[in-house]
């Protein structure tokens, strides 16, 4: 098939960007979206035009490195990561608009590449259980009800891609944060730091320039791992509890 692509190009973080239009031929429906961009880049390179920078690594939907706004939707029209989106979703002759994640807390570095360091900094503020190597008790010394373990797993599947932020009209990272709060909060091992964890992570979230949550739900709709919206309720509940405890 033949496609028209409108792509955001920006030479570096300080530069002003603009949309550019490209035509790409010979797109097969078996290509992944990123392979289609690989083909375009080969064409650009051959013409002496610098290829379009975009992030990707595992290309099997688990590392969270890739992420594009495709026709205004984070990761495009299917509930999956950009790397797992295939061209059979599109039709011949279509025009596709491709932009980087939209958020003040994810500054554009070049073209479609953004800086998501703010996510790491939120985790640094409490997204862990403090246990030094070698100091762990025997694994079977604590039983974890299967329901809690399964729920913890379900929300621990977050890949940190940032689609939730890109989709949110407020640019909030509440789904990302709520997933971590819920993962660790479901487990007995995570209880000791439960209050301080939520307080510090939320403070960092706000400091990074992410917006507040107003219960719109675009985040959960865009999440390739289908993290449920109720992790944000859990986040709010934990925050209220922590504040009541005097944090």
């Amino acid at each position: 098939m033949r496609l028209t692509l409108k792509i955001w190009r920006q030479s570096d973080a300080a530069a002003a960007g603009a949309m550019h239009t490209y035509e790409v031929d010979d797109v097969s429906e078996d290509m992944s979206f990123l392979e289609m961009l690989d083909v375009l880049n080969e064409q650009l390179n051959a013409k002496g035009e610098e290829p379009i920078a975009f992030d990707s690594d595992c290309r099997e939907g688990i590392c969270g490195m890739c992420g594009l706004m495709i026709n205004g939707e984070a990761h495009g029209p299917v509930t999956t990561t950009t790397c797992q989106l295939h061209m059979r979703t599109f039709s011949d002759g279509e025009t596709i608009t491709i932009e980087p994640w939209r958020s003040d807390a994810f500054p554009v570095l070049k073209d479609l590449v953004v800086d998501r360091g703010s996510f790491d900094r939120i985790i640094q503020q409490g997204g862990f259980i403090s246990v030094n190597t070698g100091s762990a008790p025997e694994a079977h010394s604590v039983q974890v009800p299967k329901e809690a373990a399964d729920r913890a797993f379900d929300v621990a599947t977050c890949i940190g891609c940032g689609a939730c932020v890109a989709a949110c009209p407020n640019g909030s990272a509440s789904l990302f944060m709520g997933a971590k709060i819920t993962h660790l909060g479901e487990l007995p091992q995570g209880q000791a730091e439960r209050d301080i964890r939520v307080v510090n992570m939320v403070a960092q979230h706000d400091h990074e320039g992410f917006g507040g949550c107003t219960n719109i739900g675009e985040c959960a709709a865009a999440c390739p791992k289908e993290i449920p919206l109720d992790v944000i309720s859990q986040l709010n509940r934990d925050l209220r509890t922590a504040l009541r405890h005097g944090h």
Binding site: G134, A136, P137, A139, P145, A149
Partner: peptide
Amino acid sequence: TNIIDQCVAQGVPFAREYGGLL
């Protein structure tokens, strides 16, 4: 064996049986 102890303590959500054991 130490690895499993360490990971469980970190909150790695390994599959569990109904009795709550791994």
